[in-house]
Design a protein around this nucleic acid. Sequence first.
DNA 1: GTGACTATGTAGTCTGGCTTCATGGATGTA
DNA 2: TACATCCATGAAGCCAGACTACATAGTCAC
Lengths: 308, 308
Amino acid sequence: MDVQRLELLRELAERGSVTAVALATHRTPSAVSQQLKVLEREAGLPLTKRSGRGLVLTDAGRALAASATDIAVALERATAVWDTFRNRATGDVSLVTFPTAGQMLLPGALQDLAGHDGLAVHCTDMDPELSDFPALTSEYDIVLAHSMRGQHTWGGRGLTSVPLMTEPLDVGLPTGHRLAGRVSLGAGDVVGETWIGVPVGYPFGRILHDIELQTGSRARVTQRFADMRLIESFIMAGLGIALVPRYTSSGDQPGRMVLKPLRGLDAERQIVALMRPDRAERLAVRTVVDALRARAAQVQAEHAAAAG
Amino acid sequence: MDVQRLELLRELAERGSVTAVALATHRTPSAVSQQLKVLEREAGLPLTKRSGRGLVLTDAGRALAASATDIAVALERATAVWDTFRNRATGDVSLVTFPTAGQMLLPGALQDLAGHDGLAVHCTDMDPELSDFPALTSEYDIVLAHSMRGQHTWGGRGLTSVPLMTEPLDVGLPTGHRLAGRVSLGAGDVVGETWIGVPVGYPFGRILHDIELQTGSRARVTQRFADMRLIESFIMAGLGIALVPRYTSSGDQPGRMVLKPLRGLDAERQIVALMRPDRAERLAVRTVVDALRARAAQVQAEHAAAAG
DNA sequence: GTGACTATGTAGTCTGGCTTCATGGATGTA
DNA sequence: TACATCCATGAAGCCAGACTACATAGTCAC
């Protein structure tokens, strides 16, 4: 029962093909195939079976791959123990974010982490619509994902998810708007407005849908944009109103735009760090996640102070 | 962070010397030393330091050895998973027992296990006085140990302990004895008798001591024997009375010996299976322990039925 | 000091996982 | 139907890394 081989099986379970595993582990497909064969001989019963030109795991294979994860977790926990002993989080940490969260959290978090010598954080961004968050965890140590309450629960696929912050979604209005004087808005106040929406399939979409459900009337959506800056520019130009995440947007722009909280609606999104459980144990990874969480708390505190 | 190397470190933590580890793992001391050196280079700080002619672990070394145990546990749990998949507990299981428990549990348990092809149980016995039960766990998969309540708690050293049974300690009397008609006996009834004791240091000794404490008078111990058969023969010859474990002894011998329960005293011993946590995870080991536990329950049930 | 014991360094062997190259099955396309 | 393509896998050879055997150095008991 060699750990390396089990690791290969686990990769196969995640990536689905020998070639993909070989690519990811810097080996030739032949090497991977050979090791899997050895593992199968040791196990005493078939772990994979051919399906078309590829191959799929058997039930036994999946079971074994699952326990391989437990081993990987124990292993990473062990290395975390002595990383703690040396008081040093070192190594490379890769991170992928969707643009708004990155803009809000990353600059500050990386500044906070500047003191850690030997800790290198490599960041990328990716369009939230195009990306399957869970799938990204095999390529990146940390995946910043967002989800609406009650929607996907990422934990299901055996992933570790650390909540970073809960961000309310407000209604952005141009300064001169008839509702700009209100403290907060209900569904009935806004359903008749001209809306700037997000592309179909984006998670925010659900809130506008909720507004329609609550009022029984249909919202008029004229434009659909993914980029928040673009949306804000339309709001300020008086072309419509839109849902904007409170911390990520430019916020109240004196003389141009104001943000008003929605009441009576579940208008907030969760921002979480999504990780493979073994990688979540690495001290370096945990250090970065802690920095992100601290940063998120700070952002929330600053906004609370500004509002109060 | 190679698992094999960590395993070596763990063995070193348990056995205390490179030579002992080499012996136990069928390697030369040089090989062990080299691997530990590599591990230390990888870890980046000293894990061992010389002390006299031997060497001892540093704090960091101990910490790392501890997490090596977690890895070993995860590994054994993984192999148990696919052993379960194959529905087969196979392999060798070694067991050491003290004589009385072995006589009571092993024959029945091994008969119950006869159906398991490929499962080989190797048993040995060892004098309970001479043996340091926890230390034996590095040599044997299962160590049958006994303890009085409130005495050693074996779990402390990071070992897994599974309770098998609680065995009451009765007073054995010759049939013609003046107390032979009683249902149960108190400390005052027996303290004046001639006792056949156990060698100094044996756990039972505490109970006679308790009797002395309760009554304030001193018990007269004329002989001290370790072997239960020997003790029984003395009882039956009318040479004294003694504490005998209820299930392990020959029991009531019509016309020769009767057993009377003690009241008002904590007169019982725990019989437990003691194991290294990783070995406790092996399906084969668990199967044997389960058989032992079933057997123990059966023994207790039979006695309860006979008494009722 | 001497002998017995410890750990460890050096040189050489050999196992085991890798790469390269080649084969065979499955799929989609001309 | 034939061909190109993409998969997994087999055979041969290479090479790192873990081992053994032997030698060395430090520590303890007498």
